[in-house]
Nucleic acid binder design. Structure first.
Length: 871
RNA sequence: GGAUACGUAGCUCAGUUGGUUAGAGCGCACCGUUCACAUCGGUGAGGUCACAGGUUCGAAUCCUGUCGUGUCCACCA
């Protein structure tokens, strides 16, 4: 017998195992021995932001994807899981800026662009190493030879190429438009980077001047310096007569030309029913301005101050200007009312600074422009059709609707950002001239565009930029792009569908004319025990590395992959990992027990020579294999894990191993070994470390990570399953009777009547008798002297039904029991008399009902016999 | 305002096309350890499946409504 530790020592095994897997090259599909026809299975890792430490959300992602990957690798796929990290332009720049501010007390402007960027790269060097190490700790079987970074040299080339191609195809254009401007970050924000917070504000109602015919309401009087129109509802009787007129007014000393326009969006009930229109500083007003050909007057500049040309207001912050205007309006008796109001302030998602909507020159991707190469369809159309035709399948499918809704309403995508860190924009300017290309054109005075690209522009290319595009072509057989694209699954959080998933689909269509992935599996967020997002500031986060240190990576993985439902958030807390750790240890001890009793040479299984327990566990194993495989094919891994767990703990350990302790056939060792081998193999995608460790003890040729998933075999034996279930019921009934009667476990008693080989019907009757309390029982010593059959929980105990000792009380009891049973008989009869039930219900259900009825009747007959005897 | 998800045991959740007595883990109570595992084993208590209608032979499951919770999107002059 081998000497094996009592508990699985995760710390001692995990790191060395991972190193061994990696060293032996199992993570790289090029090294796998595969059938020539082996299908692909590729996942690109959603690249974690390089600023973050790994959090539990990442751990969940890694655990789930590694599960998919390991399952498919064992099933003979050409399996590639491609690692990478994201430069997360804005986030990274912000972090480094803060760091420099803290350590050196300098701003990035003080350092200058070049020095600042050097500092950023320095910072990234450190964090990258930390993150990759954390990923390894989770046991993620990623092909490190293909590691990518969204801002490394190959990706830079891909991004530049993409920009130039899209520009030449007319899909990228420069345009002026209102953007969400963060005055602190000095950058535009995409619509979905804007957040809203509720704030107490004031709604001011006033007239521009005494001679203006109507009052307007606003929360931001300072922007009114840029008003060029007043909009009213066309149905509004109060203002109808003014529509189309132009008024020249003097607003706080600033001359304005105000046209009265009609717009259906104006709510007649709100305020005065008249809205001042500021095309330069509001998205909605901009649209009205376009529709009515209004002039655009910019009031506020990029620092959120009033521009020059507005008299005494120029140079003031917008807030100061607001106060001054309010003051002047009051003095001039133009202010009609000031109401308190909570309004939704739009703020920057990074720094919470209020957004200034500003007109600005930016680069855009046209999403609605038809392209000949795509069959005169726009990027948006292609992306919508992919979901509609089920070329791309969402799991769970309700997210397809979210995707479609968002995609339908998608406006042109602003891709330029006014920050320093990120992909540069391959554009050069000379006065009004524009040149697009990686190198400056010949000649003097060309100036490079100073902006950088939206992070999502580069991560949108992630499935193919990581596979060698644009150097690789789909038509060439031997390169990664041809071999692995499109990928099979994108596994990511649902909150990122709009930001990322949709962009990947559009860009993949554009670059290579095909979908980037076949399935999108969406996991929920990992929340704390109270259902709140985990965050550093709240201090409610759980550090996965601490948990791995304490419980082992297997436990963390198991806790994150079971007890979840796709697309639903999970509340997570340490006890879950503890429970998972306990299971890992249970599996370890099952293996320890089985390995401890295997002879040196294990013979083949001889079907003719199986005990009931042998036949039962083999049959159950077959069922579980089929179920688990089919669930994993459907990506329903949580349920698959649950079924495996029930089989391993409740059936294998609690029943079969207990039975095997003293009832064995020649084949039993072979059965034990087979069940252990296959169970361990099925657990591998969930808990790779403990399973691989056990696998080594089983003296297998190949490492488990590249071994085959258990295949179907011919061991289904329904008769054995049925019989063993009955036997289990008997044992449980015996336990109960015994615990009520306080029979000493060690006490051996004579007599036997029923054995495990008895007729099923007899067994069933016996069970009912035991349950209803008719039979009291005592039992013989089992096959091995000294072992208590019940304690050992085996099915082989023999049972003696004893009559009652006290005739009168027994008579009463039996009479009562008969009455109870007759009620049950009535119920069953009534159900069977219902023609609809018999006709419509599944046959098994009806049969079961009949069986029950028979059973009750048999017991009643028994009782009656007893009664006769007693009297 | 629009969308979407959810409401099942004290807690965290399963419950896959409607079908036996609604399940699990944790927690709780009681019993148990020379036995592979106390990171263990056994037994038990605990549920009007949010509420109200409807469809059906049959509803936690389907439909309608109400209440409550979460999330996303839009918008707020």
């Amino acid at each position: 017998m081998k000497e094996i530790a009592k508990n699985f020592d995760a710390k001692q095994n995990e790191t060395s195992l991972y190193e061994k897997w990696e060293k032996d090259g199992y993570f790289n599909p090029d090294n796998l021995v595969l059938e020539p026809t082996a299908p692909n299975y590729t996942i690109v890792l959603p690249p974690p932001n390089i600023t973050d430490k790994l959090h539990l959300g990442h751990s969940a992602m890694l655990a789930i994807e590694d599960l998919f990957i390991r399952y498919h690798r064992m099933n003979g796929y050409r399996t590639l899981w491609l690692p990478g990290t994201d430069h997360a332009a804005i986030a990274t720049q912000t972090v480094v800026e803060k760091k420099i501010q803290r350590e050196e007390g300098k701003t990035r402007h003080q350092l200058g662009r070049e020095v600042f960027l050097e500092k950023v790269w320095e910072f990234l060097g450190e964090t990258q190493a930390t993150i990759l190490n954390q990923i390894r700790k989770m046991g993620a079987s990623l092909d490190w030879s293909r590691l990518a970074f969204t801002l490394d040299e190959p990706r830079q080339r891909a991004v530049q190429e993409m920009f130039i191609r899209m520009y030449n195809d007319g899909l990228i254009y420069r345009g002026e438009r209102i953007v969400n401007w963060c005055p602190r970050c000095h950058s535009t924000l995409a619509d979905d980077e804007v957040e809203y917070i509720e704030r107490a504000g004031k709604l001011y109602t006033f007239k521009y001047s005494a001679d203006f015919p109507m009052a307007i309401s606003t929360t931001r009087p300072e922007t009114k310096l840029g008003d060029t129109a007043v909009a009213v509802n066309p149905k509004d009787e109060r203002y109808k007569k003014y529509i189309g007129q132009i008024f020249e007014v003097n607003f706080c000393g600033v001359p304005l030309k105000i046209k009265i326009i009609a717009d259906w969006n104006v709510d007649m009930e709100f305020g005065t029913g008249a809205v001042g229109v500021t095309p330069a500083h509001s998205m909605v007003d901009w649209a009205m301005g376009q529709a009515n050909d209004l002039p655009i007057v910019k009031v506020i500049n990029e620092e959120a101050n009033i521009q020059s040309g507005f008299g005494e207001f120029s140079g003031l912050s917008s807030l100061a200007a607001r106060e001054k205007i309010v003051e002047m309006l009051k003095t001039d008796n133009l202010m009609i009312s000031e109401e308190d109001l909570t309004n939704n302030l739009s703020v920057c998602y990074r720094c919470n600074t209020p957004i200034e909507p500003l007109p600005s020159k930016q680069w855009f991707v046209a999403v609605d422009k038809p392209l000949a190469r795509l069959g005169d369809k726009s990027l948006k159309q292609c992306a919508l059709e992919a979901a509609k035709n089920k070329e791309i399948e969402f799991i769970p499918d309700r997210f397809e609707k979210k995707y479609t809704d968002w995609m339908t309403n998608l406006k042109d995508w602003c891709i330029s950002r006014q920050i320093w860190f990120g992909h540069s924009i391959p554009v050069w300017y000379k006065g009004e001239e524009i040149f697009v290309g990686t190198e400056a054109p010949i000649g003097e005075a060309w100036i490079k565009d100073q902006d950088t690209l939206d992070t999502w522009f580069s991560s949108g290319m992630w499935t193919f930029s990581t596979l060698g595009w644009p150097d690789n072509f789909k038509t060439e057989k031997l390169n990664d792009l041809a071999k692995f694209h499109p990928t099979q699954v994108l596994e990511t959080g649902y909150e990122i569908i709009t930001l990322w998933v949709s962009r990947m689909i559009m860009m993949s269509y554009y670059a290579i004319g095909e979908i980037p992935f076949e399935k999108v599996y969406l996991h929920g967020m990992v929340l704390d025990k109270n259902g709140k997002k985990m965050s550093k500031s709240k201090g409610n986060g759980i550090d996965p590395l601490d948990m791995i240190e304490k419980y082992g990576a297997d436990a963390v993985r198991l806790a994150l992959t079971t007890g979840t439902t796709p697309g639903n958030d999970v509340k997570f807390y340490e006890e879950k990992i503890e429970v998972a750790r306990n299971f890992v240890n249970k599996l370890w001890n099952i293996a320890r027990f089985i390995l401890g009793q295997l002879p040196d040479k294990v013979s083949e299984i001889n079907k003719a020579d199986l005990t009931l327990a042998d036949a039962w566990i083999l049959s159950r194993l077959e069922n579980v294999k089929a179920e688990v495989s089919s669930l994993l094919e459907k990506y329903d891994f949580s349920v698959a894990g649950e079924i495996l767990k029930i089989f391993t703990w409740d059936e294998l350990a609690d029943w079969y191993l207990e039975a095997s302790k003293f009832i064995k056939s020649e084949s039993s060792p072979a059965v034990l070994k087979k069940v252990l081998t296959e169970v361990v193999a099925m657990w591998h995608p969930f808990i790779p470390f403990v399973t691989e460790t056990i696998w080594r003890e089983l003296d297998q040729e190949k490492a488990l990570i590249i071994s085959n998933w258990p295949t179907k075999e011919d061991y289904i034996n329904l008769e054995a399953e049925k019989r063993f279930d009955k036997v289990k019921e008997i044992i449980i009934a015996i336990r109960n009777v015994r615990s009520e009667n306080k029979i000493e476990p060690s006490k051996k008693l004579p007599a036997m009547i029923v054995s495990a080989d008895s007729d099923l019907k007899e067994l069933a009757t016996l069970i009912t008798s035991l349950k209803t309390g008719l039979a009291s029982l005592e039992f013989v010593d089992s096959y091995e002297a000294g072992v208590d059959a019940i304690y050992a929980k085996t099915a082989i105990a023999s049972i003696w039904i004893l009559g009652a000792t006290d005739a009168t009380t027994e008579k009463d009891r039996i009479t009562k029991e008969i009455a109870n049973l007759e009620k049950l008989v009535n119920l069953a009869e009534k159900k069977l008399a219902n023609e609809d039930f018999v006709a419509n219900a599944p046959r098994q259900l009806v049969d079961k009902e009949r069986e029950k009825l028979d059973q009750y009747r048999n017991v009643i007959a028994d009782y009656n016999n007893q009664l006769i005897k007693l009297s």
